[in-house]
Design a protein around this nucleic acid. Sequence first.
DNA 1: ATGAAAGCGCTAACAT
DNA 2: ATGTTAGCGCTTTCAT
Lengths: 340, 340
Amino acid sequence: MSIRPTSPTRTPTMADVARLANVSVPTVSRVLNGHINVSQGKRERVEDAVRELNFRPSFAARALASARPDGVAVVAGSTSQYGYAETLRGVEESCRREGLSAIISVVESAEDRHVDQVVAQVLSQPVVGVVVLKFDPPGVAVLERLLGRVPVVAVSGTRDTRVSQALLDETRAAEELTDHLLSLGHETVHHVRVPPSRREDGRTTGWRKALKRAGRPVPDVLDASWEPASGRPIGVRLAADPSVTAVFCGNDEVAMGVVRGLTDAGKRVPDDVSVAGFDDHPLSELWTPSLTTAHQDFHGLGVRALGLLKEEVDDPDVAGRLSKERPALVLRESVGPPPR
Amino acid sequence: MSIRPTSPTRTPTMADVARLANVSVPTVSRVLNGHINVSQGKRERVEDAVRELNFRPSFAARALASARPDGVAVVAGSTSQYGYAETLRGVEESCRREGLSAIISVVESAEDRHVDQVVAQVLSQPVVGVVVLKFDPPGVAVLERLLGRVPVVAVSGTRDTRVSQALLDETRAAEELTDHLLSLGHETVHHVRVPPSRREDGRTTGWRKALKRAGRPVPDVLDASWEPASGRPIGVRLAADPSVTAVFCGNDEVAMGVVRGLTDAGKRVPDDVSVAGFDDHPLSELWTPSLTTAHQDFHGLGVRALGLLKEEVDDPDVAGRLSKERPALVLRESVGPPPR
DNA sequence: ATGAAAGCGCTAACAT
DNA sequence: ATGTTAGCGCTTTCAT
């Protein structure tokens, strides 16, 4: 008696459509895939039947039968971080334009079980290739295990000639930003870094390089987490050291925390201390003071990554390409000359 | 001569594993799916073979053969917005814990072609159900077309008793926030809204309700976009009206823009004008002044949504459940009494 | 132009 | 406990 209230309708298959349209199953397939050799009449009957039954072809069956994959796996360590989210959006958009579907899988860490899980998930899906977002330890681990088996492109991180890579020249931009600070008269520049990809990030490298080239002392690096709030106590700490007049932060969010910590401790930005960020987060221009930073086109980065993947799929011999772009400096209010 | 440098190895199938382990294909399947009836010896041989060949079962084939879907489609209008991203993370995490995989598909608008595309994508995949993130026009359109065909739960938006829904009681929270502002002595509260889900958002409704109940004038609503920067000119405009002493914004990001606009125009926050936001964005506590707001647990919202979906899948008769939670007020620096 | 037949890689009966 | 047989819903030959 207590039969489900919802109709027991199976989801329709091609056979149902074929029956209704009075044609064979392959003909339905031809119509759906836009093949040429179908007569006008049958084509219309099939289209009507499809509409009437509200038929949707099964991806699984299609993938199985055609062996022509249509997915792009995107491996990321995080999805809510601003940079990741934007890059992801770039990849996803490009995929959609290409008729591919983006399957995202999150690696929590470089631990074996997490890496295994992601590798399994990726290889179990019919994918044309994979985009590894951020070439950090988890990313590297995943990539290593995927290398000969499926086309892979990496986004960001240190250069690895075995894979195609879409990069932003963070080192160069960080160097310019540091140079800019020094040119304003600061004796040296302190650095607050976000968790590095490997041993060291391009941002940290560029900063160090600029200081060395200018023959300035290289202060100890301060470590923040990805949490914006982690910058706040660091700002407080920096405020206690009167020799600190310029701070370069690994990203804008942490820079905002640092600014807040400095002002908590009574310092004025930029009058007492200059603070630069990195990324050009959408809130950076609204922050008080607005943040001097390096603009990173994350969305474009994702688009370029998919471009590289396509190249590699079309011609597997082109592996190892590099697409590099230079972030542009954005000069705003948070940086000024040192106090006299 | 110019054979591909990479080995021509097909990706291994269960048949390959079976051959290598000298067992039948179903036995391999049994081992992989953890069935009991396999002898120790064969089990080990299979496991070795799997490892040696680096075998990964095909999701497509598995889905096709078992008719037991393992995907959860998440339909979202955006992925980079803070609230969406966090909710998505909640859903994704829960899925992973349940052994499900989250397939996200983005609806760009309520236009037919976009809705069609998403519906097709969702129904073509073997999904146990779908989570529609944000019950806005595109979301409603998608949901409408999915309704009898697959279990659906909605996140946010106005209540629709036909579907299970995970909600945050925005109306109530907005009311409290407005009450709080009034209790401080403000004559009325102005409202800057973000693009509403339908005709009106809970936030706007709550604000209006509180003003009416208190018998206060209800000022015209000002419209911002999702861009934080869109709040800035609105702030400037508000600054020009000396009667404005309190502003309630649809979200924190826009509130930050409004604060910036007000200060651009020479107003002090909260001394001249109080500004409240909504959401408790991670940067709100760092903003100067830190933002008074309503904390929304988006991550938990995603988790609750998947819980509802599971309930509904287990027992289709429980459709139409409601999971509602109240955002907590977070009192910070951006709100104070009106100037005398 | 169209249908019949085979098969993609797996799981689910059904035997034994 | 294990193998044999079907068959999931499609695409792809191959006939016609």
